[in-house]
């Protein structure tokens, strides 16, 4: 099944590689992945959709949370969240189908971003399923080219972010349990 994960990670060299490498290493298939800076330029927000068995979902989150550059990994699959994706469709139209294509785009809430005698370029945002339906409908009118952005998601309930406080150098020599943290 598809799992939607939202990651907050430090914007450090190699951070993206750690996330994708971990997913590959553990045998999870990436459906989509988007990443961009947050309001805080030192942090990035990543939305990953992976295809995993339901029983593995928690394991994926735990493995993500083990990455030192990851501040927070949240499973948004079943928690209240809005998932959105952008699709760009270029469709070739004949004179007689142009009106119908425009009508369909309007029904789906799509927006024409380019129009020429050959056809249209249409952008549409929505949840990934609805985008799929839109693409299917467009395809029925003729030859199309489709580019999808991959999903981005935002949780509707804020999850408290717990950052670990600084420690003294050499604290590790007190053993594996040297670090005190709040759970």
């Amino acid at each position: 099944m598809l799992q939607v994960i939202s990651l907050l990670l430090e914007n450090k060299p190699g951070a993206l590689m750690r996330v994708t490498g971990l997913l590959t290493q553990r045998g999870y298939n990436i459906e989509s992945l988007t990443v961009a800076r947050t309001l805080d330029p030192e942090l990035s927000r990543m939305t990953i959709v992976v295809d995993v068995e339901a029983a593995q979902r928690q394991q994926v989150i735990k493995q993500m949370n083990k990455l030192i550059n990851v501040l927070q990994a949240v499973d948004l699959t079943e928690s209240p969240a809005v998932v959105r994706e952008l699709v760009l469709v270029r469709i070739r139209t004949q004179q007689e189908t142009r009106t119908a294509v425009l009508k369909e785009a309007e029904i789906f809430g799509g927006r024409v971003v380019d129009s020429s005698t050959d056809g249209f370029a249409i952008e549409m945002t929505g949840d990934p399923e609805k985008l799929g339906e839109f693409v299917d409908v467009m395809r029925s009118y003729g030859e199309i080219e489709v580019i999808r952005s991959g999903a981005i998601a935002i949780a509707l309930e804020a999850k408290k972010l717990k950052l670990q406080p600084p420690v003294e150098p050499g604290a590790g020599s007190r053993g594996p349990g040297a670090r005190e943290v709040t759970v």
Partner: peptide, 18 residues
């Protein structure tokens, strides 16, 4: 300058047990 603090905000270690 000797380092006085290590900042690893995302390094989570749980030691105490529930």
């Amino acid at each position: 300058q000797p380092v006085t603090a290590i900042h690893l905000p995302g390094y989570k270690v749980f030691t105490e047990g529930h």
